[in-house]
Amino acid sequence: MYRFLLTPRWLGILALTLVAATVMVLLGNWQLSRYQTRSAINDQIDAATHQTPNPLTEALPGPGSAPGTAGQVPPKATEWTRVTTTGRYDSDNTVLVRGRTVNSRVGFEVVTPLVLADGSAVLVNRGWIPPASGGATAQPEVPATPTGQVTVVGRVHMSESRPDTPQRRNGYIETRRIGVPQLAAELPYPTYGVYLLLDEQNPPADPVFAAIPIKHENNWQNAGYVIQWWLFALMTLVGFGWLARREAHGPPDRSAVPEDRLGEPTSTSPA
């Protein structure tokens, strides 16, 4: 009854079905890998929240000795870990990162190099501030930088992707994205290869700064795609089976009258 499956036409349909199902399974596996990667990032963020900060010099590789250069990028596993260090802010090289949104408002993030006792520096993202009146790109009034020794606790953050070229304007370095190597080239000392998102500071930070929120990865979206692609693969195989069965048995004849109803009188309307 199913010998027709060996014909070229049906073998071609079967091959296309298997290729389509295989591609869908592979897409589901890729989304599963994305789900696992994003879940691991979320676990890192959550674990760091309750972590005792480690000294910067112990947690990260040093920046080297050449001024204007960024140090080695640490392993990905160090991202979001909490570190602490003490130094002096270099307000002459404050960086304004424009076009940043916090609580649905567009403004600037303020990144200031913290110069350590050995002469190297680490970039510290001190927080978000609103722009000056005149629009979202109007250079803000930056609160005074603390003088003297400052102790910070922050979370390790890697350079952002697609960094632009920093430019100096009105006494500040401006950029759209925080690319540590690009910013390090503007500075007169060696810089660590990552920057810090400020958690705590002593003396305390100016209250005008809003903390930069740490967003969790949307891993459940990937989980949904996994189920979607695997269901599509299953439906493709089930659809082939349904077509093959329909070809073997033919469509049901709905016009046929059941034998047990033959000879029954035709119903008439009541008088």
Rank of each mutant, 00 (worst) to 15 (best):
M1C: 10
R3W: 08
F4T: 13
L5M: 11
R9M: 12
W10G: 06
L11I: 14
G12R: 11
L14V: 03
A15I: 14
V25N: 00
L26Y: 05
L26M: 10
N29D: 02
N29Q: 08
Y35E: 11
Q36F: 10
T37Q: 13
S39H: 13
S39R: 07
N42F: 07
N42M: 11
D43W: 09
I45L: 09
A48Y: 08
T49D: 12
T49K: 12
T49G: 07
Q51T: 04
T52F: 01
L56P: 00
L56D: 04
P63R: 10
G64P: 02
S65K: 11
S65N: 09
P67Y: 07
G68F: 13
G68R: 14
T69F: 09
T69Y: 06
A70N: 01
G71V: 11
G71M: 11
P74C: 12
A77N: 02
W80I: 05
T81M: 05
R82P: 09
V83R: 02
T84W: 08
T85H: 10
G87I: 14
R88K: 15
Y89K: 03
Y89W: 14
D92F: 12
D92S: 15
N93D: 14
N93V: 09
T94I: 11
T94V: 12
V95R: 06
V97Y: 04
G99D: 07
R100S: 10
T101L: 08
T101S: 09
V102S: 08
V102T: 15
V102D: 09
V106M: 07
G107H: 06
E109M: 01
V110H: 02
V115I: 15
L116W: 03
L116N: 01
A117E: 15
D118I: 04
G119E: 11
S120M: 01
V122K: 00
G127K: 02
G127V: 07
W128T: 06
W128R: 03
I129F: 07
A132V: 06
A132Y: 00
G135E: 04
A138F: 10
A138K: 08
A138W: 06
P140Q: 03
E141C: 04
V142F: 05
V142H: 04
V142G: 10
A144K: 10
T145L: 09
G148C: 11
V150C: 08
V150T: 12
V152Q: 11
V153L: 06
V156H: 00
M158P: 09
M158W: 05
E160W: 08
S161Y: 00
P163S: 11
P163E: 03
D164H: 05
T165Y: 05
R169A: 13
R176F: 12
R177V: 08
Q182W: 10
Q182S: 15
A184T: 13
V194H: 03
V194M: 08
Y195F: 15
L198M: 03
N202T: 07
N202F: 11
D206H: 15
P207Y: 13
F209C: 04
A211H: 05
P213L: 02
I214P: 01
K215S: 08
N218Q: 12
G224Q: 13
Y225L: 05
V226F: 10
I227H: 01
I227T: 06
L234A: 14
M235S: 06
W242F: 14
R245H: 14
R245N: 13
E247F: 10
A248K: 06
A256H: 08
P258C: 11
E259D: 14
D260V: 03
R261C: 05
E264M: 09
T266N: 01
S269C: 00
S269E: 05
A271S: 13
